[in-house]
Design a protein around this nucleic acid. Sequence first.
DNA 1: TTCGTGTATTTTGAATTCAAAATGCAGGAT
DNA 2: ATCCTGCATTTTGAATTCAAAATACACGAA
Lengths: 232, 232
Amino acid sequence: MDDTTDLATRQDTPPQPRLRRLSLYEAVAERLREMVLEGELPPGSRISEKRLCETFEVSRTPLREALKVLANEGLVELLPNRGAKVTEVEPGEVADLFEVMVELEGLSGRLLASRAGEAEIAEIRELHQRMMAHYRRQERPEYFALNQQLHRRLTEIAGNAVLLELETSLTVKVTRARYAANLQLGRWEESAREHGEILAALEARDGEALSRAMREHMRRTGDAVIQGLGGA
Amino acid sequence: MDDTTDLATRQDTPPQPRLRRLSLYEAVAERLREMVLEGELPPGSRISEKRLCETFEVSRTPLREALKVLANEGLVELLPNRGAKVTEVEPGEVADLFEVMVELEGLSGRLLASRAGEAEIAEIRELHQRMMAHYRRQERPEYFALNQQLHRRLTEIAGNAVLLELETSLTVKVTRARYAANLQLGRWEESAREHGEILAALEARDGEALSRAMREHMRRTGDAVIQGLGGA
DNA sequence: TTCGTGTATTTTGAATTCAAAATGCAGGAT
DNA sequence: ATCCTGCATTTTGAATTCAAAATACACGAA
């Protein structure tokens, strides 16, 4: 896209692996992921390669590579010789998903308490306060975005790469389940309060309390989502 | 491989999604996974698409699709415009891996105790005894294979699809770390004893004890592997 | 009418081709 | 001698082509 920066990047990128132009298949995968998450491609719907190729204006090769990526993320299912379909959101599987997420959050909390430095805690506090400001103003999209960012940052600070990777990929499914459940419901207030408890436990560096609070937060989110799906 | 069964499978496979001929890229991915796990493709080594295509006698398309699958499993790294390389086995990441696995095993144990029926327990007992027979005869490969099968079956019985999926994919990494650590060491006896405790807790349907035993088993395996890698 | 069979069409799987980026190397300037 | 610079070669990224499988449909028999 921006080829005037070649000169500048040429010698800087090898050491810093950040910031590169995406492959076509990555771009397609990203866009496709969005479409699935937001229900633009509804669960269960068959994906016609030809149609999508026309939509994205790419050939089938990068599209098929992107589909393989999405398949590994569990967003689409690849049926041999019969194309791909968007996976269904089964309430049972969503329950399983949160059951696992609760454990991972618990681990995250325990690690956090022992590994977060003062600087990190200050950073979290700041994110928390910004988020709460949006809550008071009832700005949902901004709140939600910061919420995601905050949770991600917490896991980053926990300092376990495998955990971070797992939470990232499972969060995609969680987000999808939220959309499917149309979860803009009444949990806002409760959720905000839980966030307060999480911050408090972090500031107190109380590993057990933090772990409990994060587990509980995830558990309740799960309950709300599952209820929204008409599950148990 | 066996194309004489086409006639038989033609009408049976649609209802039962089991048992289908693999796509070329799946076959390639499987073989490639083996090669990485067993160190035939050493960590850090660059992968030449052309060479591998010649080895497998396939074109680049299915090979590249397979590489994408392996990349999502974390076995290879895709460098844009510069091909793929086998990921390194970093002791730090292996430590992270086991830290997560311990939690998942704990969950698995808790679920197992409440969900395993008599039939399942009997099945596990039988697997356990077969495994122990191999232990007594000091037949390592057979022991190891049954060990894998038993652990997988335990997670299956735990009845959480997401957990099963996660453990499956993480087990691939665990296996790779074991190979890298050359772990055919002295933990055999200890490990066998731990398996006894697991079975006992399962038979007693003691969720807490089972969870603890499975966590502990995984923790110690991790310690041994990390030690074998020359880590902490 | 309904069901089954065979054929035409569409869609997917894999190979090939074409283009762009990266790598390696030779020659020349400092 | 060392370090640029530019070209040739190799390797990767993406489009296209070809083949095989699945689907849709029309026809004919029961």
